[in-house]
Simulated scan of single mutants.
Amino acid sequence: MPDTAITVSKIDMYQASVPIVLRALTNLKAILGKAEAWAGERKVKEETVLNARLALDMLPLVKQIQLASDNAKGIAARLGGVDNPSYADEEKTFAELHERLQKTIDFVKSVPAAGFEGSETRDLVLKFPNLTMEFTGLAYLTGFAIPNFFFHVTTAYAILRHSGVPLGKPDFLGG
């Protein structure tokens, strides 16, 4: 059986994270704009779209966007060696979600690339109410942070597509 472990002698953690997160957040902002226009044209209530979900036991669109934002901030802060700003999760409108995404984009852009140097071996500890997770920076980025971030971005896209918003793969990937 072949060895599937990734061996990296040197990785630019800034380039492996920030451009990827910024592109996805920018695309998510554009997708949200298309959803807002679609809802307006069809006279679909804003709260109907923002509270849509793929399944009853899944979080709604608004929470998916908040969590994508939180994950993006966490990636930049933890790997960039800066404080992670806290956002209140009080968004209830398209405008407020656009503002949150822009605030997140601005924060991620503000984290200096120099702070990411050596972060691949930095020890990181994430504490949740019933769980503590320990990682090196590289394991955090590749095995937890990026997959978790894209789970929420993809779920937001899927909720909107499932709701009828005319989106396609180019919207998700941007360009």
Results as ranks from 00 to 15, higher is better:
Met58Cys: 10
Glu91Trp: 08
Thr155Ser: 15
Leu97Ala: 01
Val8Cys: 08
Gln102Gly: 03
Asp57His: 11
Ile6Glu: 10
Val108Phe: 09
Phe149Cys: 06
Lys92Tyr: 00
Val82Gln: 02
Gly81Thr: 05
Tyr87Glu: 10
Ser69Pro: 07
Ile6Asn: 10
Ala113Pro: 01
Ile31Glu: 01
Asp106Leu: 06
Gly168Gln: 12
Pro2Val: 14
Lys92Val: 12
Ile31Arg: 01
Asp83Leu: 07
His152Trp: 14
Pro2Gln: 11
Pro112His: 05
Pro147Lys: 10
Ala77Lys: 00
Leu126His: 02
Glu99Asp: 13
Leu32Asn: 09
Phe151Ile: 14
Pro166Ser: 09
Thr48Lys: 14
Gly33Tyr: 06
Ala37Pro: 00
Thr7Val: 10
Leu131Asn: 10
His162Asp: 15
Thr155Leu: 10
Pro147His: 12
Arg100Met: 14
Lys43Leu: 07
Arg78Val: 11
Ala35Pro: 02
Leu79His: 04
Val153His: 06
Ala68Gly: 12
Val165Ile: 11
Met13Ile: 13
Ala55Glu: 13
Pro85Glu: 01
Gly168Lys: 09
Phe128Glu: 09
Leu32Gly: 07
Pro170Gly: 02
Asp3Ala: 06
Leu97Tyr: 03
Lys10Ile: 00
Lys43Val: 04
Ala145Ile: 07
Lys109Pro: 08
Tyr87Asn: 02
Pro60Tyr: 08
Pro170Phe: 05
Ala158Phe: 10
Asp171Gly: 08
Val62Thr: 14
Leu25Trp: 01
Leu97Arg: 01
Ser163Ala: 15
Asp3Pro: 04
His152Gln: 14
Leu126Met: 12
Glu120Ala: 11
Ile65His: 00
Met13Val: 13
Gly40Phe: 04
Gly175Asn: 12
Ser163Trp: 03
Ile11Ala: 14
Ala156Gly: 13
Ala158Val: 05
Leu141Ile: 11
Phe116Ala: 03
